[in-house]
Amino acid sequence: MQDSISFFTGFGINDLLFLGEAALKTLWISALSIAIGTLLGTFFGWLLHEGKLVASFTIAPILDVFRSVPLIIQLVLFYNFAPIIGLNFDPFASGVVILTFYTAALVASVARGGIEAVPASMRRASRSLGISYWQDLFYVVLPIGGRAVFPAWIGVVLGVMKDSALVSVLGYVELLKASQVLITRTQEPLLILAIAGAFYFALSYPISRYANKFEQRWSK
């Protein structure tokens, strides 16, 4: 107990930089996967909506796998599968691939919900004005449906951001892995965990608060 009062023993400014760098890595791998995954997921969501029967027998079960198997298993599996088919992916690339598909699987159901949230009467109305299918999709469905599911999408984004910590299992040194390394070396778990936790919290909490406010405003 006594030695935990002597803060900063063994934890220097370099370690703080190390943590900061790792935090950037967390941000980078999350942002990349979320960006690509959202585009891909929106496309899947559109397929699910349009191709009802066919899609529910083809891509739906595949996307379901990404939601029913722990992310950590997906990561290990893909990392070890890639070399088998001749791909030499480093931990970062493997992480991005899996996190992207994981995001896409989650976004697909959100996007589908968004398309279905636009009342059919509204779409009929716009189509009857002579607007084409694609124009309708971009100028009617996207803004209205997008607004309806924006909070749900934020939920996915924050989820993926937090789950990106699992890429550490492949040896990618993101924030939590860096923390673990430092804890082992400096024996200052409370301080280091507090810094890491504060980083995640400071990122996630304001955004989820904003999404809640947004939801309340639009549900009125």
């Binding site: 937090k162 910590a165 550490s168 939590l176 804890i183 919290f201």
Partner: peptide, 9 residues
């Protein structure tokens, strides 16, 4: 608002 892994740590 924090990762589950963080909570385990």
């Amino acid at each position: 608002n924090t990762p589950a892994l963080f909570q385990l740590f």
